[in-house]
Amino acid sequence: MKKSELLGARKQWSGFTLIEMSIVMFIISLLILIILPNIGKQRDNARGVGNQALGDVVQTQADLYRNETDKEVVTLEDLKGSGYLNEKQYNEAKKAKIKVEVEK
Rank of each mutant, 00 (worst) to 15 (best):
E87N: 10
V102A: 15
D44I: 02
G83I: 03
K95F: 06
Y84M: 03
I32H: 02
K104T: 08
E72I: 15
D63E: 15
D56L: 13
W13C: 08
E68Q: 15
E77Q: 13
S4I: 12
L76F: 04
R66P: 04
G83H: 00
L7C: 02
G40M: 04
M1Q: 10
L30A: 04
E72V: 14
G83P: 05
A96C: 11
N51M: 06
K99M: 09
E72H: 10
E87M: 10
L6Q: 12
I19N: 14
I28N: 08
V57Q: 13
D78P: 01
E101R: 03
L6A: 12
L7T: 13
Q12Y: 11
W13P: 03
V74M: 05
K11M: 06
E77H: 06
M21F: 09
A62Y: 00
L79T: 01
A62I: 05
K104H: 07
G8E: 14
E103M: 12
S29L: 13
G40D: 08
S4T: 14
V74T: 04
V49W: 08
F26M: 12
Q61H: 09
F16C: 08
Q61G: 00
A62N: 03
P37N: 00
I98P: 03
S14H: 11
I35G: 01
L76T: 00
E101D: 14
G83N: 04
F26P: 03
V24F: 07
K104I: 07
I28V: 15
K3R: 11
A96H: 00
V74R: 05
E101L: 11
R66F: 01
L54I: 04
S22C: 10
Y84C: 00
G81S: 11
V58E: 02
T17N: 04
F16N: 11
K95V: 02
S14E: 15
F26E: 04
N45D: 06
G15K: 06
K71Y: 11
R47V: 03
A93S: 11
P37C: 04
N67K: 14
E87R: 03
E20Q: 15
V58A: 07
V57M: 15
G48T: 09
K104S: 13
V100D: 00
I35S: 07
K104A: 09
K3S: 13
L85K: 08
V100W: 05
V58G: 00
I19W: 09
